[in-house]
């Protein structure tokens, strides 16, 4: 006759084995994915955004005080860059397990809106260095994560 303690041990062993098998099965067998795959399009688009922003800030810096740097003559830049960011947002949102990158792009969009508001209030030479640093830092952070996804072992 099998004792109660022994039955309990067998039950624990069986349920433990089942749990292990279940975990391994849910794990997708070979490996698991907790965060999205590297996306070359995101990498290229964020790099292009950074270049476009830098070109814009260099041009503003050179022309501050002139009519060319006034907001009304640069509204087209904001329209264009918002379209670029919207396209990046749609792209990253279509990739599974990409929530962190989605949040980062949303913050970038917010910062472009904030930059536009500053420009409407009147841009000075002194405004530009911290804005440049902020946009460069944001792009670096987004790309750093994207490249970490690329480097991981499969």
């Amino acid at each position: 006759m099998i004792g109660q303690g022994s039955r309990l041990k067998r039950y624990i062993f069986a349920s433990g084995t089942l749990t292990l098998i279940l975990i391994l099965t849910l794990a997708g067998c070979a490996s698991i994915r907790l965060i999205s795959e590297y996306d070359r399009e995101t990498d290229v688009a964020v790099t292009a955004f950074q270049k476009k922003m830098e070109r814009f800030l260099i041009s503003l810096e050179r022309n501050i005080g002139k009519e060319k740097a006034e907001y009304k003559n640069n509204a087209g830049f904001y329209d264009g860059i918002k379209v670029d960011l919207s396209a990046i947002r749609v792209r990253v949102a279509a990739i599974p397990k990409n929530e962190i990158t989605i949040q980062q792009i949303d913050l970038l969009i917010e910062n472009v809106n904030n930059l536009e508001r500053i420009h409407k209030l009147g841009m000075t030479h002194e405004d530009i260095p911290p804005l440049r640093t902020a946009f460069n830092e944001s792009c670096t952070a987004i790309l750093k994560l994207e490249l970490a996804k690329k480097r991981r072992r499969h």
Binding site: Q104, N111, P130, L131, L145
Partner: peptide, 11 residues
């Protein structure tokens, strides 16, 4: 802008 940048870095 700076706060959003810091959030991006922490993300």
């Amino acid at each position: 802008i700076q706060k959003n940048t810091s959030k991006t870095v922490m993300l």
